[in-house]
Amino acid sequence: MAQMTMIQAITDALRTELKNDENVLVYGEDVGKNGGVFRATEGLQDEFGEDRVFDTPLAESGIGGISIGLALQGFRPVPEIQFFGFVYEAMDAINGQMARMRYRSGGTKAQPITIRSPFGGGVHTPELHADSLEGLIAQQPGMKVVIPSSPYDAKGLLISSIRDNDPVVFLEHMKLYRSFREEVPEEEYTIDLGKAEVKREGADVTLVAYGAMVHSSLKAAEELEKNGVSAEVIDLRTVMPIDMDTILESVKKTNRVVVVQEAQRQAGVAAHIIAEIQERAILHLEAPVLRVTAPDTVYAFSQAEEVWLPNYNDIIERVNQVVNF
């Protein structure tokens, strides 16, 4: 076992799959010689050569398009979109094209593509770097969306994503890249896509979160414990598909839920989860299900982002509302 940051765990997963499968190709803007702007692909071009780890021209739609073509030639592309705010440039390639290939071809063509991309707030980026845009992809049938919250999960989930025969958007929260280390096995392992994890057991309220909000939720749970409120924390890990079984099992135990997302509120993942909960378990609920989200503005300019981003105090406030309902 080694102590790894999330970025190291991601590099390790890429190395593992480049070694395992000669069809795996890693590419994007600055991923070759430079090893990626966050060093996620550090050393991989030297190790696997320029045919398998390479730079692309600076055009996200082109990166999406060549991924579709490479997949049609039997490759397993792992392109990087340098920051997920740039995904608008590639929206047709992703939602209009690769997501639909299996459907469009009547099940005769697959798109085993994993698009890796950094996102997430709190690191004072310029516009269109930090936005939580997972909802845009999660709404598209045919796509999967994976968002790890820890180094261990990042490695296992990335390996699973690369091996999956459907297109996956794999979102890496920038704030988590180097914020902490944990034990990550050097050998390969996978974590099933579409399976949430109960990060902390509790009896009084369920917190459903993903990405960096898992950590805010855990911190809130610790504080709440001091006041005698026992919070269960679920890390979704995959926001498309959503593991409703794990959520519902918890809801039936705690009868109270708060769903936490870093994204603005409108038409989001949290709203979808709440709709599912009330359709499937309304008689188990002792209080309305509440959300903790950012406000419905475009992602905050960096001077305001500390207030704009949901934090553990916002979570505690909402939990108190549902507990005292």
Partner: peptide, 13 residues
């Protein structure tokens, strides 16, 4: 763009 990808794949193969 997809054609560029298919062609690149053919070249790699």
């Amino acid at each position: 763009t997809q054609a560029a990808g298919v062609a690149l794949g053919m070249k790699r193969r």
